[in-house]
Write a protein that binds this DNA or RNA. Structure first.
Lengths: 124, 124
DNA sequence: CAGAATCCTCCGTGATACTG
DNA sequence: CAGTATCACGGAGGATTCTG
């Protein structure tokens, strides 16, 4: 990342790629949903809900919709009764996985140190 | 990332490394501050404020404090008048940079497609 | 089963003013 | 210069109920 690329990160007018994408991914559930779909593969709505555990039905719906809108997740409806809807990563969504993995590994590696720092820290 | 590592990502009891770290990094400014310090190097408070441009003084203070508490950013006070305070990435903070870079490049690469998808998407 | 529709509650964030 | 101290708000997120 050179200074020449800098404008990509400092734009204030809402056209900064990093900020836009991280804003979207930075919500409470998007990254986790992507990771789950990446690890588990295609999942139905309720299965996804159950695997994540502590997400509300509403937020799962909202999160999936925004991921679908961005073309990161595909939604397949099977016209049966009872209804069946399957979610999976698109190619674009899957291309994010390596980066999530990288972050996950970084997190796992540095967790302990971070917690230790937090405890020692004397905030105001 | 195998299924064996899965528990690291699905823990609900607040001990999930990924969730903890991403929660912290997922706020509005942390990642940007890290990127800026990574690209620009050591910076004083006001310079940081000016370079980012659209962050409030309060949020810059808050963000820097939490990054310092986590040991990602160092804060050096020079006992002069007027005061001078310099911020820089710690080694731990710098170790995050490659991952930020990866995300940034992913974002830059897929931005256009994501925007195109958003426009075509017919949400409810 | 897979959601849609409401209502409601924090709290992250910003604006403003003040200080050592 | 580098912050603190307050006040105020908007919207992300949760709980609950309803539906095709």
């Amino acid at each position: 990342m050179t200074k020449e690329d800098w404008k990509k990160y400092s734009d204030v007018d809402g056209e900064c790629a990093v900020r836009n994408v991280l804003d979207r991914l930075g919500d409470k559930w998007s990254m986790l949903v992507i990771i789950v779909l990446g690890v588990e593969g295609t999942l139905r709505f309720n299965k996804l809900h159950q695997v994540i555990g502590d997400i509300s039905q509403k937020m799962l719906t909202v999160t999936l919709k925004s991921l679908e809108a961005d073309g990161l997740v595909s939604r397949t409806v099977y016209p049966e009764i009872p209804p069946r809807v399957e979610y999976a990563l698109t190619e674009r969504g899957a291309s994010l996985l390596p980066h999530m993995e990288g972050l996950a590994e970084w997190a796992a590696t540095h967790m302990e140190g971070i917690y230790a720092s937090r405890e020692k820290y004397i905030g105001s």
